[in-house]
């Protein structure tokens, strides 16, 4: 099966998802060509196991992100089944490549089997779709859903000089706003309750939140007693949230709190009381003091 992978880059190197894309292609029996937009990290790509060759596409157009231009430059190098990461850049470039070639695209696959049979979550994970594609197509894969291929390969790197017209001009860079996400819009929330002792200790949760782009929430008890902002309150009279991941630290799990977060996709509870009701709704419960568990959480997340 002919297969092309569009590499994902991150800064000056290849993004780890690229090895996962290769791993997924290998599982289908393919020996893929890896196309590296802008040539960043092409040597890294060549060292991934199972790659037949690397095509490093270099050109002026890669200095700014314009999905249309990128797709124009790399599309001639893509053939057969095209696989990219379901990242924001990957999705956009892949959509353009599919439209250019007039072939279907399936985004955000979490499973692949030969055929090609593709599994992907739909309705934000409330259902799963299995479909079969015949002929050429474009597929984007969810990060961390596939095993990464190992390293040690030594594929050849062909450099192709190919640019395209860029139609997007960057006018102004705006540095990252320091304000934190609101709990009602965050995909990950870390919340604290009375168990963390005092208001000042929320700074530890802030640090964890910064690592993973999470919002910081709070139980009603601490909002009322410690004067935390009401906008942080999760629960019956606060916000009802449904993030992918909700981490409850030092929250016992009163029914009013559970009402606001029990529909979260995954719940992690950290509490020193093994009988705390929060463990009843937790997917992963950790019986530990927050003083020990939060620093451990921080270092584990930083190591990802």
């Amino acid at each position: 099966m002919e297969c092309t992978i569009i590499a994902e880059t991150s800064g000056n190197s290849i993004h780890p998802i690229t090895a996962q894309l290769v791993g997924a292609a290998s599982s289908l029996g393919a020996v893929p060509t890896v196309v590296v937009p802008g040539g960043i990290g092409a040597e890294d790509a060549a060292s991934i196991d199972g790659v037949s060759k690397v095509v490093s596409v270099v050109g002026d157009c890669f200095s700014t992100f314009d999905g249309g231009a990128w797709a124009s430059a790399i599309s001639p190098q893509c053939s057969g089944v095209v696989i990219a990461g379901a990242t924001s850049i990957g999705r956009e470039v892949a959509s353009r490549v599919a439209a250019k070639k007039g072939i279907p695209i399936i985004q955000d696959a979490t499973g692949l089997a030969s055929g090609i049979t593709i599994t992907r979550p739909i309705y934000s994970g409330k259902a799963v779709e299995t479909s079969t594609v015949s002929g050429d197509c474009v597929i984007t894969l969810r990060a961390n859903a596939f095993d990464a291929a190992g390293s040690g390969g030594s594929a050849s790197v062909n450099v192709v000089d190919q640019s395209a017209d860029v139609s997007i001009a960057v006018k102004e860079a705006i540095s990252k706003a320091s304000e934190r996400l609101d709990v009602s819009e965050a995909d990950i929330i870390i919340s604290g309750g009375r168990g963390i002792g005092q208001k000042e200790n929320f700074s530890h949760l802030d640090e964890v939140a910064d690592l993973i782009g999470a919002a910081v929430g709070a139980s009603r008890a601490v909002v009322d007693e410690w004067g935390m902002p009401h906008s942080m309150q999760v629960g019956q009279t606060g916000k009802t949230v449904t993030p992918s991941l909700y981490i409850a630290v030092g929250i016992s799990g009163a029914i009013q709190h559970l009402a606001g977060m029990r529909s979260s996709k995954y719940i992690v509870a950290i509490n020193k009381d093994p009988d705390a009701p929060i463990f009843g709704v937790a997917d992963y419960g950790i019986v530990a003091t927050w003083e020990e568990a939060v620093p451990a959480l921080k270092s584990a997340l930083a190591a990802l």
């Binding site: 009603r220 629960g235 019956q236 009279t237 029914i255 009013q256």
Partner: peptide, 8 residues
């Protein structure tokens, strides 16, 4: 008892 609170 929760019914008397203004949480509900």
């Amino acid at each position: 008892a929760n019914g008397i609170l203004d949480e509900y």
